[in-house]
Write a protein that binds this DNA or RNA. Structure first.
Length: 363
DNA sequence: ATCCCGGCTA
DNA sequence: TAGCCAGGAT
């Protein structure tokens, strides 16, 4: 295995793509005797992880979750929404009016008719828990990666960041974007010309890298042909891109275009809103069954000023406290207002009866 | 409903 | 080590 991976971040020397790469020969994974291959892969992954650490020292809070609001190269929406006065004037939101005054948009909230009682208190409670927990380490050096790019390229980088970030730790995602950038592959033109296998190697090991490499090629072509090298600016057009679903489409719209058409609902938002009783299937009291259903229900009463903020708020909360399995209700300050509080003490023992468990935890 | 890819954990 | 997790496609 002679593949070279330069260890230093500062080096701009592209990763050698000439040497053989276990992933470059498509249809690898022979049904048998894949041991050598697997070892090679593990080796490369370790190297990459080292590289990533050099790029971004590990964060304590980073956990496993995907901080979707932290797209590589972008200012952190969470910071944008919750810190006092960040230098967000220079952020991607520059140009539009000052970011919402986070000091409290709540006051001006006119509660919609069907808004859950006390939601403001819960919102504030969660916000406080979030700020007392180790504030999420601010978006490391990665914001240099994209922020200095001209608007069109920056938007494309946002799009790729969103695509790559799903099911992938920030660190891995940022490193992948970094490698793409090193190789001049952050523009639709370059992606269009590059080999899919090259892209696949560069983004490895982000989650689902094979599919994502394919999507990147298609997306680049679509951007060139239909959008003059820019990314789509409407929700429907974003959704039409392969690999871009509702969650990412709304996120991209927020970050790239500063346009809020809907709430970015991921599994955390979905889960927590149901636990809190904030959403239900239309005309019933039952839990919503999908993030999309949650999004629609939530939008019916949550004031638009909070549509961007709620995602980073609940994502962080969902990682630290209101976890999917065995939520840490004892560490939560809003249990008095939470219908689901302490109801999920699922005894770790009973793996059996999936039905029971799913009833309790799959909320 | 199942697959994708790899990290995490019981 | 087996199984869960997480958006999106099919």
């Amino acid at each position: 295995m002679n593949r070279q991976i330069h260890g230093t971040v500062s080096s701009s020397k592209p990763i050698s793509l000439k040497t053989k790469h276990p992933l470059s020969d498509s249809n690898q994974e022979p049904a048998n005797g894949a041991c050598g291959l697997v070892e090679t892969r593990v080796y490369i992954r370790k190297k990459r992880l080292k590289q990533e650490e050099a790029l971004e020292p590990p964060e304590k809070d980073s956990g496993k979750g995907v901080n979707t609001h932290k797209l590589c190269g972008l200012p952190d929406i969470e910071e944008f929404a919750y810190k006092k006065n960040t230098a967000s004037s220079s952020s991607i939101f520059a140009g539009k009016s000052t970011p919402m005054d986070n000091s409290i948009t709540m006051n001006s909230v006119k509660t919609e008719g069907n808004a859950p009682e006390n939601w403001v208190k819960v919102f504030e409670g969660i916000r406080q828990m979030r700020s007392s927990e180790d504030a999420p380490v601010d978006s490391m050096g990665c914001d240099k990666a994209g922020s200095f790019l001209p608007p069109t390229e920056r938007r494309f980088a946002v799009l790729l960041g969103a695509l790559l970030s799903s099911q992938t730790k920030d660190q891995v995602n940022n490193a992948a974007i970094h490698r793409l950038h090193e190789n001049g592959l952050l523009t639709p033109e370059a992606i269009d010309k590059a080999d899919e296998s090259t892209i696949r190697e560069l983004i490895y090991p982000v989650g689902f890298y094979t599919r994502k490499a394919t999507y990147m090629k298609k997306i680049a072509k679509i951007c060139l042909m239909k959008y003059n090298g820019d990314i789509p600016s409407s929700l429907d057009d974003l959704l039409s891109l392969p690999g871009i679903g509702p969650k990412m489409a709304h996120l991209i719209l927020h970050v790239a275009w500063n346009d809020v058409q809907g709430i970015c609902v991921d599994t955390h938002v979905h889960r927590i809103c149901n636990r809190l009783g904030w959403v239900s299937r239309p005309g019933t009291k039952q839990k919503t069954s999908s993030p999309e259903e949650t999004r629609v229900a939530l939008q019916q009463w949550l004031p638009k000023e909070e549509w961007v903020a709620i995602n980073p708020l609940l994502v962080g909360f969902g990682q630290m406290i209101c976890t999917p399995l065995r939520p840490r209700c004892e560490a939560c300050s809003v249990t008095k207002l939470c219908p689901a509080a302490f109801k999920e003490t699922s005894s770790p023992s009973s793996k059996l009866k999936k039905s029971n468990r799913s009833k309790e935890t799959m909320i």
